[in-house]
Amino acid sequence: MMDPTTFGQLVDEHAAGLALYARQWCAAPEDVVQEAFLRLVRQNKAPDTPVPWLYRVVRNLAISALRASERRKKHEHIAAQRHVDWFLPKEFSALDGQTAAGALRGLPQEEREAITLHLWGGLTFVEVAEVLGSVSSTVHRWYTAGLNRLRERLGVTCPKKN
């Protein structure tokens, strides 16, 4: 059983990252994130690492939601997913959120998941591998390849060497 303080802290710190992670599959990630948190408090014994556990549950729920929505209204889901903003307007970064989100959508799923989990989820490569059911070396390879693709798509220039 998890105490309310820890639970509230998890919600405050990881709800946005979990929603971003769930947006890769579904247009309504809030339901998925909320269900993941509720499943966390229903656990008889709290998981040792609740953050990777939450990401894994969100992933499974989001994929299930995607399949269910595809069966019901495939076209509406795709249309809705296109208009979802992944990031806040540009304030603290040199990159544009819309552009970055578009570049992320174009990545292969493994590379996109690895980058999302590591950069915005704050998980280590071992934890990312645990979520994705892989090994850390493979995850690191996916991550590096994804960053290279993003750099090409976003037009990030290499810093000049003096």
């Binding site: 709800a15 929603a19 971003l20 994130v33 909320q34 509720l38 806040l88 970064s93």
Partner: peptide
């Protein structure tokens, strides 16, 4: 890569429209 990572990390994920109080009550 680190420059790109830093630039990507500067992007803030859009916060979900979760009602925190409702979520804590349900929890």
């Amino acid at each position: 890569l680190s420059e790109l990572e830093r630039a990507l990390t500067g992007l803030q994920p859009k916060p979900p429209t979760l009602n925190r109080d409702d979520l804590l009550f349900r929890a």
